[in-house]
């Protein structure tokens, strides 16, 4: 099998607070044959700025594509926001030659150049389509038998599908396949495609927490042992802010263990919990971890 080599793009949130995602990715992916190359000089993808400054957003996304371009590598991003932003930038540049030359001029001052030759992968399609479910299955040493997980894909990995969604935008299944490869079961629930509320948190925090609370209540009702996520913003809302979300919707019965998929992958590969950042999950994960011990 050809070795896979990808430029690891972390973005802001993972490298500044969601350390468990980065740790579990760095522990698991190289063991599955993916060489991760650091993207020196990377910056924010600009996604949150797109609401107030189009040119600033486009510059930020393009300069990260340019860094990967100069490394001669495709990008692996772990964040749904970055994933959408980088691909939207590619579309905007493809469609508008004026924009392209305006951004190219600015990039030149930073010594950067984007040749339009970079493909952007999310962890989900990198694992499912590049590494492959069989290879994930082969790496399992300690199957997560007897555990049932609900999944939360998050919005910006699936929508807008005009960018070419890595999975069916209304009925995604790749994350389920990747969880089942670990020996666990998956549970479907009607609210699977609902938003975690993260993008509303800055302007309307109570409404954002209510969205997270309603999502968590839906997961609790489907009788899952835990929830698997693949985006740092979703993780922050559903894991770190679970207590606040419970308080806002007034439902103290909510108790949902939330994991990054790569943490579950690492556990199934038999890797030590510490290296997977499992002490950083703030939701009640100890019960699940105890069952695996």
């Amino acid at each position: 099998m050809k070795p896979l080599k990808l430029a690891l793009y972390l973005g802001c949130t993972i490298q500044s607070e969601q350390y468990a995602y980065e740790m579990s990715v760095r522990e698991t992916l190289p063991r599955l044959g993916v060489e991760l190359v650091e993207m020196e000089g990377a910056s924010c993808c600009g996604h949150p700025i797109k609401n107030v400054s189009m040119p600033m957003w486009l510059y930020l996304s393009t300069r990260n594509l340019a860094i990967a371009s100069q490394l001669g590598l495709d990008i692996l991003t772990l964040c749904n926001g970055c994933y959408m932003s980088l691909r939207e930038a590619q579309k905007a540049l493809d469609e508008d030659a004026n924009l392209r030359s305006r951004i190219a001029q600015l990039l030149e001052a930073e010594g950067l150049k984007y040749e339009g030759d970079v493909k952007v992968y999310h962890l989900l399609d990198a694992l499912h389509d590049l590494v492959g479910v069989d290879r994930v299955k082969d790496a399992v040493e300690r199957p997560l038998e007897g555990l049932r997980f609900a999944t939360h894909y998050g919005c910006h990995i699936l929508r807008p599908s005009e960018l070419g969604a890595p999975d069916d935008p209304e009925d995604p299944h790749k994350l389920e396949e990747l969880i089942e490869a670990l020996g666990a079961e998956t549970v479907d629930y009607p609210e699977k495609l609902d938003c975690c509320g993260a993008e509303l948190a800055m302007n309307y925090s109570d409404a954002a927490l209510t969205m997270a609370g309603l999502k968590l209540r839906a997961v609790q009702r489907c009788d899952a042992d835990g929830l698997a996520v693949i985006c740092p913003f979703c993780m922050r809302m559903l894991d770190a802010k679970q207590d606040a979300a419970k308080a806002v919707i007034g439902d103290q019965r909510i108790s949902v263990p939330v994991f990054y998929y790569t943490q579950l992958l690492g556990l199934a590969m038999g890797l030590p919990q510490e290296g997977l950042g499992l002490n950083l999950n703030l939701s009640p994960v100890d019960g699940v971890l105890g069952r695996l011990a």
Binding site: G11, E17, S43, C44, N279, L280, L282
Partner: peptide, 16 residues
């Protein structure tokens, strides 16, 4: 972003 290149600089975070 202007100052650090990112919307947030690396933080200290709590464990459980």
């Amino acid at each position: 972003i202007l100052e650090h290149g990112m919307i947030q600089t690396p933080q200290e975070v709590p464990t459980r």
